[in-house]
Amino acid sequence: MNDTNCGGTSSDYEKRLEDIIDVIQDLAALRFDARAHVGLAGDHIDAVAAGVNSLGEELQASYEELERRVAERTAELAVATEELKRQASRDYLTGLPNRVALWEHMERVIGSVEGATPGIAVLFLDLDDFKKVNDTYGHAAGDDLLVKAADRIVSELGPHDIAARVGGDEFVVVLGAVESELGALATARRIGKRLSAAFDYAGHTYATTSSVGVAIAAPHLRGADALVAAADAAMYEAKRAGRGRCVLYRERRPAVTQVLTH
C-alpha cells in the first residue's frame, strides 16, 4: 500500500526507520561513529535521525571525557601511590632510606652476593656530639646537623652503596662491593673525617666527631639483623674507646680499632 504523506511510501518510511534503529543499536554497542542518514525533507523522520546523530555525538563526547578523567585520576593515583611508597621508605628529615628500606635493601643484596668477592660491609655511625649541639643551639640546629651529616655521608659513597638513618643520630651505611676489611675500614675512615669537618648553622660554627662500627659479611654473620647488630656492637666499642674512632667487628676479641679523627 502506498502512503503519499510527505511524498513517501510506507516502505520508504520503514526503511528510513530501520536505518535509524540500526544506528541506535550501533550506539548502544559503543560504536560511536554510527550516523543515521538525514534526508532533505526535514520531516519527523529526518528530525529523529538528526536527533539520534546528535545524541550519539553527545554520548561519544561524554564517553571520551569519562575515559580522559579516568586516565587522569589513574595517573594521579599512581603518582600518589609512588609518593606514599617513597615517604614510607624515607626518613622525613634527611631524605635517606629509613630502617624499613634499609632492611629490604640488605636482604636483597645479601642474597645476591653471599660468599662472593667483592662482598658486603655494614658501617654503623653515631654522631658523638649530637646531643650537645641539640642542647646548645636547639633542635633546629640538631636537625640541620643531621641533614648536613647525611649529605656528607652520601657524598662519600659509591654506586653500590647506600646510607640510611636508623635512629636519632644513627646512620647505617651498606657498602655493596668491598674487596677486603681494609677497604671497608678505609671508607669508614673517609666518612669519619668528612663528618669531623666544621658545620655552620645560623652564624655558629661547631664540630663533631663520630663513632663507627664496621662489620663484614661472613659465614658467621648471615642476614641483615646479624650484620647490623655486629656493626652496632662495634660502634659501642668505638664509643668506649674514645671519641672519633672506628672499630672493626671481630667474633673474637680484640677488635681492630682505628682513630678516625685527629
Partner: peptide, 11 residues
C-alpha cells in the same frame, strides 16, 4: 519551520 529544524534548535 519544520520538524528537523525544530529538533536541532531545541537540541
Amino acid at each position: 519551520g519544520n520538524p528537523l529544524s525544530r529538533m536541532m534548535a531545541n537540541f
